[in-house]
Design a protein around this nucleic acid. Structure first.
Length: 488
RNA sequence: GAGCCAUUAGCUCAGUCGGCAGAGCACCGGACUUUUAAUCCGGGCGUCCUGGGUUCGAAUCCCAGAUGGCUCACCA
């Protein structure tokens, strides 16, 4: 016991001794179900009706202002905060002294009378109270809150208590996900779930996490995208499907990347990239209105308006516009030379597609405040997208950019099994050449395509980034309740 | 993975030139029956991120490491 106490701070020791006092008084410091009649917000809103009435509320004591034989406190529940008032004349000496032994952070249930103080503050005067949970550690400071970002992410519960506005971001996140689900369900899409434990990690260029199945004694990959499963469902005749869920990518972390992140992927048989672009811009505008009441976005000083339709420009045209170089007219060798002239960082023996990608990243991407669709990506970097009918070197693909970020990815789905197999073989070559983010061969998927997949449009949206955009959050960690952190 | 910055009381932060470790809130004791960052009086509280080094003496200077933030690289 003594050794235990050595690790406790003075405040923790004090609170533990108060805990013992409650137990010795035959009072349970960890209470049970408590019937509430109102939330603190309801009392404030319906004060005119409730004045003089008895209510039951429950929450956490946040601030205490004692005055000898009377005392004030602020009680916080899920809806907000209300002031409590207690007077020795009303409750008697015993209960009053019990009340004085409470600490900031304790959770209590209160029965009391609604009234307004001389200074105009809507309050509840305590008639009876019950300790529902004794708090054994002091809360962060009442005025400055919890600022240490490390602690805020690692101890999100404290962040939520000390910085109530944090909750608004997660309410917005919930609205976005619910909004996407409602929007798609209303339009006849079927919500499905596909495996997160994969034998082949397909559907994206990314390094997977590896895990192990003991009974089968085999390694499995955590999925990097649900795409190939969802398109198998198109083969099976489910014509409009979507999945909201997590993907896992074994890559670096940044303000825009977390190893596990949430996406929605949507597929529509007999659609194409164009129908998916319309869906994207309408869905984004709808969600902005749902969360913020307007399609205008203010993100870290940049202003964009998501009202459809959004501008569209082919990737090569965008490069010509922003760099002055018309890569379409150049051969591979000429394109590589043009890149070297501009000191672009391209690998030895780079292909034209890699040069295009690099030109785009350097000259175009930073300028795309948007919203704007970049379309017609080179076939080499789009192994699951259908070629354009009038130009087989590019695909019928699009990526919307807003405030300079890629917010989604979509295309007309490649449903030619022979072309798909060649694309996979090409990826496997790149993999063998050392690109561990290149796609793996998926024979089973090719076989599914051989049975016949209807022409289709597909779309994937990064939900975390979308929530960042809609809540003006500069870091992905601000929109994840428990972002990935190194263990301490 | 690289560069820059940060890490001091439960929380928010000062700490000058290398010379006794500080403040506010919180906590403890006292006063106070309508306060609201309540007020007033008194008090306690430290692995100065960790480990080395320089020095008579290190929170402070040097080296290595840990964690975090930002920027860059990779990616969505």
């Amino acid at each position: 016991m003594a050794t235990d106490l050595e690790n406790l701070t003075d405040q923790m020791i004090v609170r533990r001794s108060k805990l013992q006092e409650w137990k010795q008084a035959q009072l349970d410091p960890y209470g049970h179900k408590y019937e509430r009649t109102h939330s603190t917000q309801e009392i404030v809103q319906d004060f005119d009706k409730l004045e003089g009435e008895t209510v039951s509320i429950a929450g956490r004591i946040m601030v205490v202002r004692g005055h000898g034989k009377a005392s004030f406190a602020d009680l916080m529940d899920g809806s907000g905060t209300i002031q409590l008032f207690i007077r020795i004349n009303t409750v008697g000496e015993d209960l009053y002294h019990q009340y004085e032994r409470l600490d900031i952070g304790d959770i209590i249930g209160v029965q009391g009378t609604v009234f307004r103080t001389k200074r105009g503050e809507i309050s509840v005067e305590i008639v009876q109270f019950t300790l529902l949970s004794k708090s054994l550690r002091p809360l962060p400071e009442k005025w400055h809150g919890l600022k240490d970002v490390d602690l805020r992410y690692r101890m999100r519960y404290l962040d939520l208590i000390a910085n109530p506005e944090v909750k608004d971001v997660f309410i917005a996140r919930s609205k976005v996900i619910q909004g996407i689900r409602d929007y798609l369900l209303e339009r006849g899409y079927l919500e499905v779930e596909t495996p997160m434990l994969n034998t082949i990690a397909g559907g994206a260029n990314a390094r997977p996490f590896v895990t192990h199945h003991n009974a089968l004694d085999m390694d499995l990959y955590m999925r990097i995208a649900p795409e190939l499963y969802l398109k198998r469902l198109l083969v099976g005749g489910l014509e409009k499907v979507f999945e909201i869920g997590k993907n896992f990518r074994n890559e670096g972390m940044s303000t825009k990347h977390n190893p596990e992140y949430t996406s929605v992927e949507v597929y529509e048989a007999y659609g194409d990239a164009d129908s998916m672009m319309v869906l994207t811009e309408e869905l984004f505008a709808h969600l902005a209105k749902l969360v913020n009441g307007t399609t205008k976005i203010n993100f870290q000083g940049q202003t964009v308006d998501l009202t459809p339709p959004w501008e569209r420009i082919a990737m090569l045209d965008a490069i010509r516009k922003h760099s002055g170089v018309d890569l379409k007219a150049l051969s591979e060798t000429e394109a590589v030379a043009a890149a070297k002239e501009r000191e672009l960082d391209i690998p030895q023996g780079a292909t034209k597609a890699q040069v295009i990608n690099e030109f785009f990243d350097v000259f175009v991407e930073p300028k795309l405040v948007g919203p704007i669709f970049i379309t017609d990506h080179p076939v080499e970097i789009s192994p699951l997208a259908k070629r354009k009918a009038d130009d087989p070197s590019v695909t019928d693909r699009f990526e919307p950019f807003i405030v300079g970020w890629e917010m989604a990815n979509g295309f007309t789905e490649l449903n030619d099994p022979i072309d798909q197999k060649e694309r996979f073989l090409n990826q496997v070559e790149q993999r063998q050449a050392g690109d561990d983010e290149a796609h793996m061969m998926d024979e089973d998927y090719v076989m599914a395509l051989e049975y016949g997949m209807p022409p289709a449009g597909g779309l994937g949206i990064g939900i975390d980034r979308l929530v960042m955009l809609l809540t003006n959050s500069p870091s992905i960690r601000d929109v994840l309740l428990f972002p990935h952190m190194r263990p301490r």
